[in-house]
């Protein structure tokens, strides 16, 4: 636990001491801010605001955003050779991976919390469906965790950050749009299975419309656990090579 905390703290300090993290956060807030404001203008006097607006946007943005956050976590250690020191410290491989993951998730949570300001504005000017919004945020939080875990997995496989980000983006694209493969084969059963394997399949049809389904939480938690487990095995395999 101590090791996880130490590694997580170090990574978080790394995030917050590098200008890149703030640039990413700034770009992110600009995107959500513009979306929020234009949606606000659009719905004025026409309809209530969409409670899951920001989370819905994030569902797509995370495809690019998650690899950016995670690409350097393990690949940099591999490239700089610090992985060798980490692996000879009295810390299990799982602790390393988990600490790294938690730091990325914590940073993501921080940005997510920043966007709650929009909800705060809404509460002050209208009566938004706050619980629906909270459900959507819960969903996108889990969703983001899963996307970050996938990004981390690819960061573990290579020394090249760009390659890690690239592969993670492709993997996330597949995980997001994988269900469109079902369109090609014209089978609803297969499309259903693919849909339920995709990230959006467990967000768009539940959290986004205000329903918290236990199966979706299990899906995201399961994806996190599996991706981290494989990442640990990948790290472990470096010892054997």
């Amino acid at each position: 636990m101590r090791a996880i905390r130490l590694i997580m703290q170090r990574e978080l300090a790394q995030y917050f001491s590098s200008p890149l993290a703030y640039l990413i956060a700034g770009a992110f807030l600009l995107l959500t801010g513009v979306t929020f404001y234009s949606d606000l203008n659009f719905s004025l006097g026409v309809r209530p605001v969409e409670p899951a607006l920001i989370p819905n946007l994030l569902a797509q943005v995370m495809i690019v955003f998650a690899p950016l956050l995670t690409m350097r976590l393990l690949s940099e250690e591999n490239r700089e050779g610090t992985m060798e020191l980490l692996l000879t410290a009295p810390v299990s491989d799982g602790n390393i991976v988990f600490g790294k993951f938690l730091s990325a998730w914590a940073y993501y949570t921080f940005i997510l919390l920043l966007t709650l300001l929009y909800q705060f504005i809404l509460v002050n000017i209208a009566l938004p469906d706050i619980s629906h919004t909270i459900a959507a945020y819960l969903g996108i939080w889990m969703y983001g965790g899963a996307a970050l875990a996938v990004g981390l997995l690819f960061s573990a496989t290579t020394e090249n950050q760009i390659l890690a980000a690239f592969m993670a983006t492709i993997a996330l694209l597949l995980l997001y749009y994988g269900d469109s493969l079902g369109r090609v084969v014209a089978s609803a059963d297969l499309a259903y299975i693919l849909f339920n394997l995709t990230l959006q399949g467990h967000y768009a049809a539940s959290f986004a419309i205000g329903a918290v389904r236990a199966e979706d939480i299990v899906y995201y938690a399961g994806l996190i656990v599996v991706a981290l487990f494989i990442a640990i095995r990948v790290i472990e395999s470096k010892r054997w090579r």
């Binding site: 807030l29 513009v34 929020f36 000017i125 009566l127």
Partner: peptide
């Protein structure tokens, strides 16, 4: 329960400033 939204133009400018300029800035 969730009603349609009405916001004055002045209020809208403040919101635009906060969300599009201030926070990313």
């Amino acid at each position: 329960v969730t009603p349609v939204l009405f916001v004055g133009s002045e209020q809208r400018d403040i919101i635009a400033f906060i969300t599009v300029v201030l926070m990313p800035g």
